[in-house]
């Protein structure tokens, strides 16, 4: 068991390093650099940047050095907890990302809770009563949910909310609280704004989860231990909830690691439509501006969070599944 944890930990470190190389390379792949896109945006607004100014800017940002040196310097700063300057914003990257990262996590968690709370009971019902009328209805609605693009759903929800309920949709805060320091009132305001983004972001995941839960549970319901549990005289509800459902939930634990990056990268367009102050739109802007420090940090953070998430779900899986804990299948 200790060997398992140590092996996972070593793999995690190795993966993080590989991610850092990859994210650095990805950001450098498109032609040009921050200065070229800076010149382009300056000339678009009518002012010109001279050759000398451009070179000075390159030198100042270290963009004239070979790519390996740039990577080494970047990693050196990273390890000291210095994520560099967000070029476009002229502020340290940690400043720009900080609050947005927290809010992203809040929204992700809300979306995940919504997804699980809805999908698991429906999935269980569909498996226990397969091919029933309600199963078909859930399947139909679920596939519609899966097929509708999130941003479209966001637009519809916003329109309906605005036109029929006069609700202030979009954003995570009322205008009064947007710039205010954190307080109980601000948290309450956030709570009131959470449901819509959580639902919009959670819908497609819900449909997927229903399908997964249904097929997992259908497999488990056929196993002999369900019949022996019934033969012991347990009520049908307890038989199903205590045995096959418990076993069918195990695979979900291993997906926890992927949920956060999935919500972040899958939600860029939705976040733009709903004008959510999350990491997604920031990443998009940074990538357009070729702001390598900001984009690199976000991509790296997402990678690291995936690795940490996976590591945590490995530990959780070990805890809930004795077959893994005791090293036998």
């Amino acid at each position: 068991m200790v060997a398992y944890v140590v092996r996972r930990l070593l793999l995690a470190v190795l993966t993080v390093w590989a991610i850092s190389v990859l994210s650095f390379m990805i950001i450098h792949l498109p032609p040009g650099d921050y200065v070229t896109s800076y010149i382009a945006s300056m000339s678009a607004s009518g002012s010109a940047v001279s050759e000398g100014e451009a070179n000075a800017l390159r030198e100042q940002l270290g963009l004239d050095k070979p790519i390996t040196v740039q990577y080494a310097k970047w990693m050196g700063l990273m390890l000291q907890g210095n994520f560099g300057m967000a070029m476009e914003w002229g502020r340290p990257v940690s400043d720009v990302i900080g609050d947005r990262l927290t809010l992203t996590m809040v929204i992700s968690v809300a979306a995940i809770i919504f997804t699980w709370a809805l999908a698991l009971p429906i999935g269980i019902y569909s498996a226990v009563y397969p091919y029933s009328f309600a199963d078909y209805v859930f399947t139909f609605v679920g596939f519609i949910g899966l097929a509708i693009p999130g941003f479209l759903l966001a637009l519809v929800v916003m329109y309906v909310g605005f036109a029929y309920f006069g609700a202030n949709v979009g954003g995570l805060f009322s205008p009064d609280f947007a710039e205010a320091p954190w307080s109980l009132a601000k948290i309450w305001d956030l709570t009131k704004h959470l449901p819509i983004p959580a639902v919009v972001l959670g819908v497609s995941g819900t449909a997927q989860l229903i399908r997964i839960m249904r097929s997992n549970l259908l497999d488990e319901l056929r196993k002999p231990y369900v019949m022996t549990a019934r033969a012991r005289g347990l009520s049908e509800y307890r038989v199903i909830m205590r045995y096959p459902v418990r076993v069918a939930l195990n695979p979900f634990v291993s997906t926890i690691g992927y949920l956060l990056p999935y919500v972040v990268s899958g939600s860029i367009i939705v976040s733009l439509v709903l004008s959510l102050p999350t990491v997604g739109p920031l990443l998009l802007k940074a990538l357009i501006a070729q702001d390598m420090f900001l984009a690199g940090t976000i991509v790296l953070l997402l990678g690291v969070m995936t690795v940490i998430g996976t590591f945590i779900s490995d530990l959780l899986l070990m805890w809930v599944d004795p077959r893994i804990r005791l090293g036998r299948q």
């Binding site: 002999p224 231990y225 033969a231 012991r232 005289g233 009520s235 418990r246 004795p322």
Partner: peptide
């Protein structure tokens, strides 16, 4: 099929053992 009476018979009056000792127990209990 799920009444209290039949459930007291199952396991109480009549015990059942199966041919699959491998899968007759829950793997996580």
């Amino acid at each position: 099929a799920n009444s209290r009476e039949i459930r007291s018979v199952r396991g109480g009056d009549i015990g059942l053992i199966f041919q699959e000792p491998m899968t007759s127990f829950s793997p996580v209990h």
